[in-house]
Simulated scan of single mutants.
Amino acid sequence: MNFNADGRVDAKASPVASIFLPRIRRGALWTVGEVHFLATPLRERFPAVHKISTAFSKWLSTQECVYSNKRKINPFSYYLEGSVQNHDPEVFAFESALSALNAGQYFVTEDDTEFRLDAICKMLGLRGVECRDS
């Protein structure tokens, strides 16, 4: 592990991954699950972790792609709010998330701020979706 001057792990220089499990925010929004392999450059610094990252990406691509910046038409983009559409990686859905999208569930990212969630909830209120206060 590599550490910053303040004693925290330097994620860009260490062989670590971060995982954000889906959760409910504001009672009406689900966060997308996220996995990040943070070291850069991953392939050169940590070839074994790069191999895991590549295998994970290959496996993930067997799931339904529900959003990609590379496609003009994304049928689920209506339900992907906040920063979800601002990230480069494609968004894949497991069966439960795909069912939720088909049922009209809205998704945000883990790192959407409270201010951003306020704006999203106001907009969703116009669609009849009720959010709870933070």
Rank of each mutant, 00 (worst) to 15 (best):
N2G: 10
A5P: 09
D6R: 10
D6I: 08
G7Y: 10
G7R: 07
V9P: 05
A11F: 13
A11L: 14
K12D: 11
K12N: 12
S14G: 04
S14Y: 00
P15G: 12
V16T: 08
A17P: 06
I19A: 06
I19E: 11
R23A: 07
I24E: 15
I24S: 14
R26A: 10
R26W: 06
A28W: 06
L29E: 02
W30F: 12
T31V: 00
T31A: 03
V32L: 11
G33S: 00
G33R: 04
G33K: 02
E34A: 06
E34H: 06
F37M: 03
A39S: 10
A39M: 03
A39L: 02
T40C: 04
P41R: 00
R43I: 03
R43N: 09
R45P: 01
F46E: 10
P47D: 09
A48Y: 05
A48K: 12
V49H: 07
H50N: 14
T54F: 11
T54W: 04
K58A: 02
L60A: 11
S61E: 08
S61M: 00
T62H: 04
Q63S: 13
C65V: 12
Y67H: 11
S68R: 01
S68C: 02
K70N: 11
R71W: 09
K72Q: 13
I73L: 13
N74F: 09
N74H: 09
P75F: 06
F76M: 08
S77K: 12
Y78A: 15
V84T: 07
V84S: 04
Q85F: 02
N86I: 04
H87K: 14
D88A: 12
D88E: 14
P89A: 04
V91A: 06
V91Y: 04
F92K: 04
F92W: 10
A93C: 03
L98H: 13
L98W: 09
A100W: 10
L101D: 01
N102K: 15
A103W: 08
A103H: 13
Q105T: 15
D111F: 12
D111S: 12
T113D: 12
F115Y: 14
R116W: 02
L117M: 11
L117K: 08
D118M: 06
D118Y: 10
A119R: 13
A119D: 14
A119L: 11
I120T: 10
I120A: 07
C121H: 05
M123I: 09
M123H: 12
L124A: 02
L124S: 01
R127F: 02
E130K: 15
C131T: 07
C131R: 00
D133R: 12
S134W: 11
S134K: 14
